[in-house]
């Protein structure tokens, strides 16, 4: 079976071509359908850039990104992305925010509200349909943002540090919810996170990016059985894997003051 997603020598640089800022350098990897991949790396290593490239929001400077063998040329309903901040529209209710992708597609109001309600139930926001984003907690806002992305039924879901701004307990709960939805919808997921233990607990594979320019430093299979449980968090295999991933991540360089 051909891979769902393949990146082939992808480079991305920003700014003046004469003096470019290299964000990503020679990234190649493949993903099979149904896989759950986590990307870790220090800040500035190009994780967000990588997701934006796959989402078709940016074009690679060179190299090819292909979905099912077809090069990605722009945003497509087959790929959905969730950003670090929920980016809900403050003037829309939860229901109308989640129905937005259907509205853009020209669905009737009755139909899009019906579908949106299904996804509101999926992310357990029942009862908050008529609320505005500012009336929700951070975790609920992110759930609404995920529902908005899922409503167009993407095959590939990209998540850019979706729970990075939330407290640890909320994040653990939402990680579990995410795995539940992933199994239910049989999606393929790439999630960026800066929490190594979260990545190991969630993923089938963890990719580690180096400090800028981001190159692929490691591709670590996570052999833990599924379903993942809380009990695994203290299992020696889990701890070993966390350590392995950690060893591949560059430590932030702290400039020593010159005397």
């Amino acid at each position: 079976m051909p891979p769902l997603l393949s990146l082939d020598h992808v480079f991305k640089s920003f700014g003046d071509p004469a003096d470019p800022l290299h964000a990503l350098k020679d990234i190649s990897f493949q993903m099979r359908r149904g896989e759950f991949l986590c990307v870790v790396g220090p800040s500035g290593s190009g994780k967000s850039t990588l997701l934006r490239l796959i989402a078709g929001l940016l074009q690679p400077t060179s190299g090819v990104i292909a979905l099912d063998g077809d090069p990605i040329s722009g945003p497509s309903p087959r790929v959905g992305i969730v950003f670090q901040t929920s980016n809900l529209m403050p003037w829309r209710t939860v229901l109308d925010n989640i129905a937005l992708p259907l509205e853009l597609r020209g669905e009737s109001k009755a139909r899009r509200h019906q579908i949106a309600r299904e996804y509101i139930a999926l992310v357990a926001l029942d009862g908050f349909e008529g609320h505005y984003p500012h009336q929700l907690s951070g975790g609920m806002q992110q759930r609404a943002a995920i529902a908005r992305t899922l409503v167009q039924n993407p095959e590939l879901l990209l998540l850019d540090e979706p729970f990075g701004a939330l407290d640890a307990l909320t994040r653990e709960y939402l990680d579990q919810e995410l795995l539940r939805i992933w199994r239910l919808k049989e999606m393929t997921v790439i999630m960026v996170t800066h929490a190594i233990n979260e990545a190991v607990w969630l993923a089938d594979r963890v990719l580690a990016l180096s400090q800028r320019p981001g190159v692929l430093k490691a591709d670590i299979p996570i052999t833990l059985p599924r379903p993942r449980t809380e009990a695994m968090l203290t299992h020696p295999d889990y701890l070993t894997l966390v350590k392995t991933v950690r060893n591949h991540i560059d430590r932030p360089v702290i400039q020593k003051p010159t005397p």
């Binding site: 929001l57 722009g74 945003p75 950003f83 980016n87 992708p101 853009l104």
Partner: peptide, 21 residues
């Protein structure tokens, strides 16, 4: 906010839809 524009673009919004919505 450019992030909201990115959301609209990722949802394949047209230039006109970005303007109106």
């Amino acid at each position: 906010e450019p992030e909201l524009v990115a959301v609209m673009r990722s949802l394949q919004a047209t230039r006109w839809q970005i303007f109106i919505k």
